[in-house]
Design a protein around this nucleic acid. Structure first.
Length: 462
DNA sequence: CGACTTTGACCCGCGC
DNA sequence: GCGCGGGTCAAAGTCG
């Protein structure tokens, strides 16, 4: 039954989508909106290594001589003497190699994408701190002491900011985002639904931080006719209820990729616009994730962490979470979903410049569209934005992209982001001609940005 | 036969 | 205390 459902799921966050989007973006000029219909696969190989491999004519065995749209053997000149058997064998080997490369690249891509996101988060937090310092922060409110970077950044501190005292956990790079809370955290002061939870101490226990993240929810709104968006994980439905104020039932799923995985999600259609699917994630996976799921999970984890960090600066009961960037607005919980015992961040993928305006949220739950002005400044040439999402299309950006785009929409972050990217990519300052940096690690250039949607993003918190 | 969905019952928190 | 609503459980049914 679920398999039937899966077949009709919205192919939302599959890693191959990343690659295709990356490729599509690379086919676009910086200021051009038109996308060539032809999509080159794995075009991010057109970075240094790719060029190098092409400089070495005849080196068809080069591991980077693969950006040929599966034209794998055609690039080998003068091989007619090879027997069909050898060709087949070689083809198999080539496919095997490409497959592993693709896996590796996808992993790296997701990994770096997450790192980029963390850096952006850090900047947001820094801005928040600065604002509090400049003005309202002096009124005795608790300041956002918890560092998002400390909480989330999987990189060694030296690579990010030598002034940050966070512990280094190199291994984290290979870990599932579920492990992200297991980093240092100094003070958490979060509020959900009028409750204030304060966790204080120089180093809060890992359990406490995990609870904080686990309790934070990430809600995703996306247009889809499919009963459920495909996020790379396996889910088992364990319940369904009619929720008050919504004629559409709410379905409850839990992750079945590992026994005891605490991750759950709720799926419900928007009462006002049934084409909108609202998916709410809660918890952290305790198992390795496939690349597609990793992208999703990193984003939801990051969003949750961001939400919590944003909440650290307020104890207000009206739900307004002051942040410098203004990305996050605490909302009354959508009537279509459960009342929030815990803070929830909503990622709205249903709006954008190209989308037909609609009114989905109930009157009490306004959304906050984020015009991505300034965003193109962030992306190098080949990494320019995708065309805006059309309503009803399933060309939906990944969550990472969405969140990143939302944050990046603040022009004030541009410089910091660029610097952060260059740091991640190996210290090379980004230039307009720089396609995103060093791929020597097998890391595709500038993760996240290649697919940043030009439209579509609303971030809000409940 | 195992994995999954369905669905009514149950539990719990909250507001009155 | 009671009712309401959200969330979960678990038995029964379904499917491959």
């Amino acid at each position: 039954m679920e398999k039937k459902q899966r077949a009709s799921e919205l192919p939302f966050f599959h890693s191959d989508d990343f690659l295709r989007r990356s490729s599509a973006a690379s086919d676009r000029t910086l200021d051009g909106d038109d996308v060539k219909p032809h999509i080159k696969e794995m075009d991010f190989f057109s970075t240094n290594k790719y060029n190098q491999s092409h400089d070495q004519k005849g080196s068809s065995s080069s591991s980077f001589d693969v950006n040929t749209g599966l034209n794998l053997l055609n690039s080998s000149q003068g091989v007619s003497w090879i027997s069909d058997e050898n060709k087949a064998k070689r083809l198999q080997e080539e496919n095997q190699r490409l497959r592993s490369m693709l896996d590796q690249i996808t992993r790296n891509y997701n990994e770096v994408q997450g790192q980029l996101f963390m850096v952006v988060q850090k900047q947001v937090l820094a801005n928040t701190k600065q604002q509090l310092k400049d003005g309202e922060g002096v009124n005795g409110r608790s300041s956002p002491v918890m560092s998002v970077q400390q909480l989330m950044d999987p990189r060694p501190p030296a690579a990010l900011d030598v002034n940050e005292p966070s512990a280094s956990h190199d291994k984290r790079q290979e870990l599932s985002p579920s492990s992200l809370p297991n980093t240092t955290m100094e003070v958490v002061s979060m509020e959900g639904d009028g409750r204030t939870v304060q966790i204080q101490g120089k180093r809060v226990s890992e359990q406490a931080s995990e609870v904080a993240l686990r309790k934070a929810r990430v809600s995703v709104r996306a247009r889809s006719e499919a009963p459920m968006i495909s996020d790379g994980c396996q889910w088992r439905k364990y319940g369904q209820k009619m929720a008050k104020g919504n004629p559409c039932p709410r379905a409850y799923y839990r992750c079945t990729m590992a026994v005891g995985c605490p991750v759950r999600k709720q799926v419900q259609r928007c009462a006002e616009d049934k084409s909108i699917l609202i998916t709410t994630y809660e918890g952290n996976h305790i198992h390795p994730l496939p690349p597609a799921a990793t992208a999703m999970d990193k984003t939801t984890s990051a969003a949750a962490a961001m939400l919590l960090s944003g909440s650290t600066s307020t104890t207000s009961k009206d739900g307004v979470v002051p942040t410098s960037s203004g990305y996050f607005h605490s909302l009354p919980y959508a009537s279509t979903m459960a009342a929030p015992l815990f803070p929830t961040i909503t990622l709205d993928l249903t709006q954008g410049p190209n989308a037909v305006p609609y009114i989905c949220p109930p009157p009490s739950t306004p959304t906050f569209p984020l015009p991505l002005h300034g965003y193109p400044m962030l992306v190098p040439n080949k990494l320019s934005a995708l065309p805006g999402m059309q309503m009803g299309q399933l060309r939906t950006a990944s969550m990472v992209e969405t969140v990143t785009a939302a944050i990046a929409s603040d022009p004030n972050l541009t410089a910091a982001l660029a610097a952060a990217i260059s740091t991640i990519m190996g210290g090379t300052p980004p230039t307009p001609s720089n396609n995103g940096g060093d791929s020597s690690n097998g890391v595709p250039g500038l993760p996240g940005s290649p697919q940043l949607p030009q439209s579509c993003t609303t971030l809000s918190t409940n």
